[in-house]
Simulated assay, not measured.
Amino acid sequence: MTTIAELRNINSDSHGSANRKKINEAEAELVINSAVMLGNYYLKVNDRHK
């Protein structure tokens, strides 16, 4: 099993590499849904302070 941390390795997959780390669909959905949830939370908290 690969971890998200391994995606930002010494070879830096963000710049392209022949040895990319693959993640499964479930983990990809978890990351995307978590990012959306946190973004919504921060926006709602920010609205409270206006």
Rank of each mutant, 00 (worst) to 15 (best):
L43R: 15
S17V: 03
A26L: 12
S12W: 12
V36L: 07
M37D: 13
H15S: 11
I32M: 06
R8W: 10
M1P: 08
N19D: 11
R48H: 14
T3L: 11
T2E: 00
N11K: 02
K44M: 07
L30W: 09
L7A: 01
S14T: 10
A18T: 13
M1V: 11
N40I: 08
S34P: 00
I23Q: 01
E25K: 13
N33H: 09
V31D: 01
G39A: 07
R48I: 03
D13H: 05
S17Y: 00
M37G: 11
K22N: 05
K50V: 07
I4M: 06
M1G: 09
A18K: 15
S17F: 01
I10Y: 11
A26H: 15
E27H: 01
S12D: 14
A28L: 06
V31T: 04
N24H: 06
V45K: 13
D13E: 09
E6G: 08
M1Y: 06
N40L: 15
N24C: 10
R8F: 13
V45Q: 14
V45Y: 11
A5T: 14
G16V: 00
S12E: 10
M1Q: 07
L7D: 00
L7M: 05
E6H: 08
N33A: 10
A28G: 04
V31M: 07
D47W: 07
Y42G: 13
E6D: 12
I32K: 07
T2N: 04
I4Q: 03
K21L: 01
S17T: 08
K50S: 10
K50P: 00
E27W: 00
I23R: 00
S12A: 12
T2Y: 02
R8M: 06
